[in-house]
Amino acid sequence: MFATHSPFAVGWGAGSLVIENIDFAGILLGGLSAGTVLFIVSVGLSITMGLMGFVNLAHGAFAMFGGYVIVLAMNRAHVGFAAALALGFLAAAALGAVLERLLYRRLYRAGELDQVLFTIGLIFIFIAATVIVVGPESQLLTLPQSLRGQLDLGFTHYRTYSVFLIVVGFLIVAGIWLAIERTRIGAQIRATVDNRRMAESLGINVDRLFTITFAFGSGMAAIGGGLGAEFLGLDPQYALKYLVYFLIVVSVGGLGSVVGVYCAALLLGVLDFVLKLYVPKGGTMFIYVLTILLLLWRPQGLFGRKET
């Protein structure tokens, strides 16, 4: 059924990190890298939810699927890290496009309840399929030699991989932001988020736009699943275990806002990291309280636009 342990009981796996010197910079970097992973997984969810208004609880399943493709490609077929990431992106994007065309599309106009039910069902199918095809055990990501070890940052030494993640995350948010602000398809996305009917009457092919963004979001989730396998682990329960975290990031950041999701993810990452270290018991409670207060204050999230 669901994960034997609830997503709340599972932490970030921050304990699995080797933290030599717990100084301010170290905590910040650790939190930022965890937050970056969260961002890469969630950004697609935010865009598609903002664009289509679809409560897609199964988004994490695409991250899991992509993560498996990436890790298995590396471990079993000995594909290189970068190539495996590309492969995972393409596989998840293709799967996302197919499912969007065949199934998701039928529920855009349905109520939230049907959407919730449908995507929970999808999660179960993904979990069961993963257990049947690959097995119930968790998968380990073997980092390439160049990303292992410590990096001298001048002011501190820190894990190369974490620094790599933070840089990649920044590049991704910058890239997506530029794409949305500067490209033709980005303009179409903005117009459609704004007012779907207007966008359609302007001749934007909304159907195609939905498929493309859904596929892209699924692909990004896959990259997040692969890059984050080291932090979050990778096992069949993945999609359920972190569901609440993905949802918190998206709702706090604001639907459809890439920058919002980035800020919310980094905030949550750092906060979680700090709390796990200093308040090992009850730290998560603080996160929930904060989320509740924030959503009561701004139901549309930090960077979300007010519903009219």
Partner: peptide, 28 residues
Amino acid sequence: LVLLRTRGLTLLMLTICTMALLQEAANM
């Protein structure tokens, strides 16, 4: 009293978080 002002995803999140909060409290 406070949650039912909201609808949709926000309400969904708030109900989940309230429950999670109680669970953490019981755990603590």
